Simulated scan of single mutants.
Amino acid sequence: MNRLRLGLVAALAVLLTACANPPSVVTGPVTAKPQPQLAGNDNPGAIYQPTSARMLFEERTAKYAGDILTITIEETLSASNKSDNAANRTSSLSYKTTGDLPFVPKQIEKFLTTNDASVGVTGANDMKGTGATNNSNTFKGSITVTVIEQLANGNVIVGGEKQIAINNQINTLRFTGVINPRDIQSGNVISSTKVADARIEQVGVGAMADATTMGWLQRFFLNVLPF
């Protein structure tokens, strides 16, 4: 009996886990610290120092681990689909006779061979189907991220997180993706539309978030009921 109860509890726990909120889409790190530079053989008497040189006529672009840049989030997605189907079919059959019918019983022949004897069959089939789907999403804002890793081809992986707490309500914005340093504009700013493998997530924790979230029991029945 105890094993049966434990089995039921375990099964219920598995079902409730399956009904929980979906996992976070941001799975990578969201911050990185600058890597220590290797000591170079600097010449104290030279103007140019390899480890600290900066181009005079070129703005420094974020490309090393720990560098900071700003992502302008301007995502607008929309999709629509509409389908109309219609089919109809009409058929008819009529039969009338006044002569003798071979191999037909007399009672039936008497009925069919009268002057007004006729048989008619009509049928109709009509089908109509209509479907429509519309989806629109708009996400605008900005977040400052850090360079996580520099890839072999020069692209960099970036990630960042922003948290805002107001009246015990915490809103968290996370962002990760891969960018090409050549797409970075003046001021180390880049649009989210130029970020590859972008992962954008905004989640809330607090009373307002709880009020707009379906309860665990409702999620349970929503997943297990067949209708």
Rank of each mutant, 00 (worst) to 15 (best):
A62N: 00
D100S: 10
S80E: 15
D100E: 12
G120E: 06
K63E: 11
N153W: 07
P22C: 04
T76G: 08
G159N: 08
T193I: 05
N43I: 10
K96Y: 11
N135K: 08
V195M: 01
A18T: 09
P36I: 05
T27K: 10
N125E: 03
A20C: 11
S94A: 14
F227G: 00
S91H: 13
A53E: 12
A132M: 12
N155F: 03
A152K: 15
G120N: 06
T76F: 07
L217E: 07
G206F: 07
N153S: 08
L217C: 05
K96A: 14
V104S: 10
G141A: 02
L6R: 07
T70K: 11
L93R: 02
A152W: 01
I108E: 10
R219F: 00
P105G: 06
T27V: 11
T212K: 13
Y64E: 07
T97A: 12
V224W: 02
I148Y: 01
P50W: 03
P36D: 05
L222P: 02
S136D: 08
I143R: 00
I71F: 01
N88T: 11
G206Y: 08
V203T: 15
G129T: 07
T122I: 05
K110C: 09
N2Y: 08
D116I: 06
I164P: 10
V147R: 05
N153E: 10
L222E: 05
G120R: 10
L77A: 13
C19A: 15
S80N: 15
P23D: 08
L101A: 04
N115W: 04
G177H: 03
M127T: 09
S91M: 15
V30M: 04
A39L: 07
T193W: 03
V119C: 03
E109W: 09
T114E: 05
